[in-house]
């Protein structure tokens, strides 16, 4: 269950991920409220109209769409929203911080994809879509500012990570932050200059782009993202991790980080599962 207002006794949240606690979730079976609690109904998410305020290519197959909702939406960078258009509903992770006043989404073009295809081929600035959300527990929680962080993802898995890293920096996270972004080849990487610039301004931040293909890697690391990470940081005991993107990759990376010593309760992940065929 989740509380909308009021203080949840710590006992009712023992063993829960910090991001769940932040959102007010608790175990109802062991919760004896010490003050009035307002309980959220299971489906508190509201559907809002949103206007496309900008569209811009980040790479050959990734478009950045910024949306503004009529009412400001209360979200955490790294959560996701579900867009609905003509009966098609698809989820996209939020790359922006709330004070930007808009939802920044990174949408990869999927061949034959209904929602991504529309964004890439037809959508115009000024068009509207419906937005439901936010949802998801993959976001930065402050309180352990010296803990080292790993943020890893491939493809548009960077979208939530780009939000989370800036959220962590804004929350004055002091511990080391390593961002790893993987792609098949150099052309699949994006926001490279922005992340390099961010790392230049924040000494605790390190950014490592990684590609599978060797010939045109440039200054990117070469190899599968898990080997690139573990060759640099073999022991992850005490680290917190954020893993996003392709479901197979997310499963694999979660296990690798865990086996390298990261506590299971310190692993936050969002798998970009494709929509169930309708």
């Amino acid at each position: 269950m989740r509380s909308a207002a009021g203080t949840v006794p710590p006992r009712a949240q023992a063993g829960m991920k910090d991001s769940w606690k932040t959102r007010g979730y608790f175990f109802s079976c062991v919760c004896v409220p010490e003050e009035n609690l307002e309980i959220d109904s299971a489906d508190a998410d509201i559907r809002m109209e949103a206007l496309i305020s900008s569209l811009e290519f980040l790479s050959g197959d990734v478009i950045r769409a910024c949306l503004t909702t009529r009412e400001p939406m209360d979200f955490r960078a790294g959560q996701y929203v579900t867009l609905i258009r003509n009966g098609v509903a698809r989820s996209y992770s939020i790359a922006s911080l709330p004070q930007a006043g808009e939802l920044e989404l990174h949408i990869r073009k999927i061949p034959g994809g209904q929602m991504s295809g529309w964004f890439h081929d037809a959508a115009q600035v000024g068009d509207t879509v419906s937005v439901v959300g936010p949802s998801g527990e993959c976001f930065y929680v402050s309180g352990r500012e010296d803990q080292p962080l790993i943020l890893a993802g491939t493809g548009t898995g960077l979208a939530p990570l780009y939000g989370i890293v800036r959220d962590a920096l804004q929350c004055r996270h002091r511990g080391p932050i390593h961002v790893f972004h993987g792609a098949l080849n150099r052309r699949g990487l994006y926001l490279v200059n922005e992340l390099r610039e961010l790392a230049r301004r924040h000494p605790q931040l390190q950014y490592t782009p990684a590609v599978l293909g060797g010939d045109e890697a440039g200054d990117a690391a070469v190899g599968p993202i898990d080997s690139v990470i573990l060759s640099r940081i073999p022991n992850l005991s005490g680290w917190r991790g954020f893993v996003c993107g392709d479901p197979g990759l997310v499963q694999m990376l979660k296990k690798k980080l865990f086996l390298a010593g990261m506590a299971s309760s310190d692993i936050y992940a969002d798998a970009f599962l494709p929509a169930a065929p309708s």
Partner: peptide
């Protein structure tokens, strides 16, 4: 965590625990 880590690297039994979701 300690137990699950041991099980995952134990080749005698890890195949039983290769569930999709950690």
């Amino acid at each position: 965590d300690i137990f699950y880590r041991k099980v995952l690297v134990d080749n005698r039994i890890n195949r039983f625990f290769e569930g999709v979701d950690m």
